Lab assay of single mutants.
Amino acid sequence: MEVRTIKVFTTVDNINLHTQVVDMSMTYGQQFGPTYLDGADVTKIKPHNSHEGKTFYVLPNDDTLRVEAFEYYHTTDPSFLGRYMSALNHTKKWKYPQVNGLTSIKWADNNCYLATALLTLQQIELKFNPPALQDAYYRARAGEAANFCALILAYCNKTVGELGDVRETMSYLFQHANLDSCKRVLNVVCKTCGQQQTTLKGVEAVMYMGTLSYEQFKKGVQIPCTCGKQATKYLVQQESPFVMMSAPPAQYELKHGTFTCASEYTGNYQCGHYKHITSKETLYCIDGALLTKSSEYKGPITDVFYKENSYTTTIK
């Protein structure tokens, strides 16, 4: 009895394709271990004539594949690729409408935090270190965002349907971005203890939790000093293409032309909904596939993004 075979390709990165001759009487799992086709788990399936010449994702289970996976995804987590594939199996079914010149995501599976993050990423200057993220990001900007969303979920250790947080998501993504040249110098002034300067680099240099107003941050924000008295913390120097200011959701007025974009969060910790506000020729609110415009805006804002380049204080 002759062994019926077909020729397929296996890959971990969709760049390096490895030619395989597979036995049609055995499952993919018996031949390769966990195997995925377009995100779908085909591990328990036997090869079919229609699979001839198709590319299958496999887990990096030998040295060659491990090197290829690390170079593309910059992670050695053995569960990463499987999590990416199972997320992709959902995100490829989502709709990605162009809204006001940006790629958004039609609401499904509690994905409003991903839509808000995706919209924000198209408006701030950011370059990702893992080629996987950078490639998928370019495709997302062009309207094909399924891979990018699935990668975000995998890097953030999230599953489809789980509630997510924009600030946490951005923080994970910033860790995989090139923020080497970003720098922030802060000064804390206390009447009792004097003053202390701190220099922050990388992710810490672009994120701040405690106030939404970048102007206020430049002037000074009140913080408790270690001595128990009130101290003032203010920005001395900022070198970065953008800054992200966050605070627990509270009524906040966004003035046209003073910011790049913002995240609105309605609801409580267990259950809520994100919308995205962007400042173009007027203010726009993007909620999944829905767009509304207004000249002014007041609502429960939790993150505001500002364009920056270089700032030095005039406070002496």
Rank of each mutant, 00 (worst) to 15 (best):
K127E: 12
A136H: 13
K229Q: 09
P34G: 08
G288C: 03
N89L: 12
H48L: 13
F128A: 02
D109C: 04
N110F: 03
A40H: 11
V3R: 13
K298H: 08
Q237C: 12
N14F: 07
C285T: 15
R184K: 02
F242S: 01
Y306H: 01
Y269S: 15
Q230W: 13
Y72Q: 09
G143R: 03
A115L: 04
S310P: 10
P248A: 10
E215M: 06
T312K: 09
S246A: 03
K158A: 06
V236L: 09
D109G: 03
C225T: 02
W94E: 05
T11H: 05
I15L: 11
F56L: 11
A69K: 06
F148M: 13
M170P: 03
P78A: 15
A136T: 08
E168W: 06
Y252P: 00
K95E: 15
L133M: 07
A145S: 05
F305Y: 06
N309K: 12
Y73P: 03
Y137I: 11
Q238T: 02
K307Y: 10
M170G: 01
P249D: 02
Y138C: 15
S295I: 11
Y297S: 03
I315P: 15
R83Y: 06
T314C: 03
C271Q: 10
K54P: 04
R83S: 08
A115R: 01
G257S: 08
N89H: 15
G53N: 15
L283N: 00
V185D: 01
G257F: 02
V21P: 11
K93I: 04
M170V: 06
M170E: 00
D77E: 13
T91K: 01
N110D: 04
S310K: 01
L291M: 12
T116F: 02
V99S: 07
N178S: 08
T226C: 10
G194D: 01
G53R: 12
F174M: 07
A136F: 08
C182S: 07
L200Q: 15
Y172I: 15
L173S: 00
Y234G: 01
F9Y: 12
Y172Q: 10
C112D: 04
V58K: 07
D135L: 09
V166I: 06
T11Y: 06
K127L: 07
G257R: 06
P131H: 04
F148P: 02
D13V: 05
Q238R: 02
Y113H: 06
Y234C: 07
Y84I: 05
Y252M: 14
E162D: 12
Y311T: 08
V22K: 07
D165I: 02
S171A: 12
W94A: 00
Q238W: 03
R184I: 03
K127A: 14
K255M: 12
Y214P: 04
Q31S: 12
H74T: 01
Q195A: 14
M170S: 04
I105E: 02
F217A: 13
I45H: 11
T116C: 13
